[in-house]
Nucleic acid binder design. Sequence first.
DNA 1: GTGAATGTTCCGCAATACGGAACGCGGGTT
DNA 2: AACCCGCGTTCCGTATTGCGGAACATTCAC
Lengths: 270, 270
Amino acid sequence: MAIDYTNNDVQQFGKGDEAKDRQFVTALARGLELLRCFSPGERYLGVAELSRRTGIPKPSVSRLAGTLVKLGYLNFLPSLGKYSLGSGVLSLGYAMLSNISVRQIARPMMQELAEYSQASVSIGICDRLSMVYIESVRSNAPIGIRRGIGSRLPLALTAIGRAYLAGLPKAEQDSLMHQLSLRDEQNWPRLRTGIEQGLRDCAERGFCLSVGEWERDVSAVGVPFTDGEGRPMAFSCGGAAFLLTRDRLEHDIGPRLASLVRHISGISRI
Amino acid sequence: MAIDYTNNDVQQFGKGDEAKDRQFVTALARGLELLRCFSPGERYLGVAELSRRTGIPKPSVSRLAGTLVKLGYLNFLPSLGKYSLGSGVLSLGYAMLSNISVRQIARPMMQELAEYSQASVSIGICDRLSMVYIESVRSNAPIGIRRGIGSRLPLALTAIGRAYLAGLPKAEQDSLMHQLSLRDEQNWPRLRTGIEQGLRDCAERGFCLSVGEWERDVSAVGVPFTDGEGRPMAFSCGGAAFLLTRDRLEHDIGPRLASLVRHISGISRI
DNA sequence: GTGAATGTTCCGCAATACGGAACGCGGGTT
DNA sequence: AACCCGCGTTCCGTATTGCGGAACATTCAC
């Protein structure tokens, strides 16, 4: 598994953070932060490791993790002395997915476009500074990595992320971009250029591109969308770069995806 | 949506419960209990409703929910004054799924059996007193409801649940059955009969049945399994009762599913 | 045996989460 | 309008509860 799935969207909750909010429950935030440490790359984590990652002192980690085990959100493996995610986390995700109705409406059309383009067509929403797939269908072509529902992609480098930003109200857009700039001041100028190109593209043509910018061999187009309940999200169609050339994305796939999204807007607006 | 998706596996956390455990973090448990209130049927819940469901007083619910919003696990809809699940819950579930390798190994064989039987083949693990699908493939026959990954099924009435119980060590088996009996004393005698039949079937033939016992028109066979990491789970093959007659389940599908699971045991044991 | 990891338990402390009461708000109903 | 009812939030005094340094076990490596 060469892909780095690590969740970079860390938030530290030092007890006396600026969140001097009397309405903020630290213990809850910390417990959830522990769960977030587990990612597809990091199956098993021990107390010390969790403590290092989150900055929470060991005894507290031990207590919180113990609680999470009792609740079924973590498993404890006595042989390793480590924790892994438990079955509890699954059903939460499912409850959320089943409440987003666009998925059912869009799936047939997505499937059709996937077959046509021999690529993957996905819908994503934003969590912290990543996009997360809530639906993804792929052509049954032999190649093509399976990035399933729930997988995370960076906001700044992908077509779906840029499209998402393009669909946001200015205020939220700025806020997210500000956070991005803080996280990676080094590369921000470069990232920013790509994002702003995306914003322009979406405004002018209704879709934006990422040609090998995230992973060398992957290209995609993205289109912003807001569902009937006002939830911002984005569609994308992406796959092997040698199949999805820039020309084809700009003149064929891009317009098709944009048209697909217009269709869905029409249907779900009723 | 006629199916009752409601999550019955409630746990109350009155502050001074028997959990006088100095190692138990109540605030965390309560916060997660709030998230659990949302199910595919219950998209939007307000403070009062959450308070009623969980027994947590309103101010505490307000505080905890506020915290969950800040963390991205809940959305707040000002127009309704209610909460819905946020994007944060998704990625947790995905991180867990991607760490269960049986899924990838088993999928092709599951697909094959699904086509052959014109039914759905699934893998499930247990969360509290429900089975939760971690993988599910279905034939592309026109009929067949889509129960995706993450959906919950009762332990006592389904083939997958009974098979799961059959695969557990005696102690855990007894513990779960005890909890089941407490939750529904009324029907326990009947449920128990079905479960014990399932245990016998699994011991004798390697699979168990549920013929219209959970939903009138749905029948299935189930087979217990334990993966390379010692995680107990169960396979099932189920679908329309008129296609999957008892005879066919007993003499064709059941043995085939049992054989499939033996294959997988062989592969993943390496 | 020593040393450096790990994870858990102890326990005194005070910060923290708690929850009853009160407040403000909107939307019915008479 | 005046009333009421249900909701959600804020207040604030309280003691509960979670906290974390220190000490204590274990295990591993060499």
